[in-house]
């Protein structure tokens, strides 16, 4: 055999001259032109993509608005005769369930958004984002922020129905409601993000959604009041952050902003929701920042 021995890559710069290659300077450091975009820039760009994709899929729009609407109208009409919660005399179930349906829309928007994380990985878009010099929190915020935008857009349509069931509010209340909707969808999508990040298939996520995210909604007071349930259920509902989200979502329909912002109950619930959001987003950001690591190798 005429192989001239194994190549030693360190001596190869000598053989490269024939092709006009320039040998690498040993310590030359190239300053990056730009060190990537700001957190806000990255988040906005990725969130915009989520929204564009959302409005390009009319069936998704129709489904995500239609399903909660059908739930609300049918369950509301059907359960109103038997709805008789303590302290809520005179309230129809249609009215009681209305904020719960808003929450349901947020839940669905978050679930959809989390599924698109798996799709983005599967279809390759995510790898291009991951190799970009962007803050990892920006990747989370883009997805989660986009989902919140979508949720806000969907719920805005349902909010048009509020006056017809006798729920009215001023601009202050509407602003509080909007902030609440965004907060809750950040929390929900952040949670979905945590689960979806490592998942390989969307079918796995559906199971997770039914076991974790759906029960969080059912046990939040969206579906039935927290008062009057068995003690063990009451305890579960209290530790569920969505319950507190439900509290601050329902509040602006029944009290004016001034009263709410001095009410300990409201502020307490708000604090729980904010904590939920912060924890989920930080964990998600850490999760994205973690790269596949090689196992420790013994020195040979």
């Amino acid at each position: 055999m005429t192989l001239a021995g194994k190549a030693d890559p360190r001596t190869l710069t000598d053989t490269a001259r024939s092709s006009g290659a320039v040998p690498d300077g040993p310590t030359e450091t190239i300053a990056p032109g730009r060190a990537g975009a700001s957190l806000a820039g990255v988040s906005l760009a990725l969130a915009r993509r989520e929204f564009i994709r959302f409005i390009r899929q009319p069936h998704r729009l129709a489904g995500s608005i239609g399903q909660p609407l059908i739930f609300w109208l049918f369950l509301g009409a059907g359960l109103t005769p038997s709805f008789n919660a303590p302290g809520m005399e005179g309230m129809t179930y249609l009215e009681y369930f209305y904020p719960g349906v808003l929450m349901m829309m947020i839940l669905f928007a978050s679930v959809f958004a989390s599924i698109t994380i798996i799709e983005d990985r599967d279809q390759g878009f995510l790898q291009g984002v991951l190799v970009a010099p962007v803050p990892r929190l920006g990747i989370v915020m883009g997805k989660v922020g986009g989902a919140s935008l979508v949720a806000l857009f969907q719920t805005a349509i349902l909010l048009l129905a509020a006056p017809f069931i006798g729920l009215t509010m001023g601009w202050g209340g509407a602003a509080m409601l909007a902030v609440t909707l965004v907060l809750v969808s950040l929390g929900f999508t952040g949670l979905g993000f945590l689960f979806a990040w490592r998942m390989k298939s969307t079918s796995g996520f559906h199971a997770l959604m039914m076991v974790i995210m759906m029960p969080m909604w059912v046990l939040s007071g969206a579906f039935f009041p927290i008062t009057g349930v068995p003690a063990w259920l009451h305890a579960i509902m209290l530790v569920n952050p969505v319950t507190h989200g439900m509290t601050i979502l329902r509040a602006p329909f029944y009290a004016d902003p001034g009263t709410l912002l001095t009410s300990a109950g409201y502020l307490g619930a708000l604090a729980v929701v904010v904590a939920w959001v912060v924890v989920c987003l930080s964990l998600a950001s850490m999760r994205v920042g973690r790269r596949d690591r090689g196992a420790a190798a013994a020195l040979s």
């Binding site: 730009r34 700001s38 820039g41 760009a45 915009r48 984002v129 962007v134």
Partner: peptide, 13 residues
């Protein structure tokens, strides 16, 4: 749209 999103990731607008 693809190019502008990619540009935004690198701070171009």
């Amino acid at each position: 749209e693809n190019l502008s999103i990619h540009g935004a990731l690198y701070g171009l607008s």
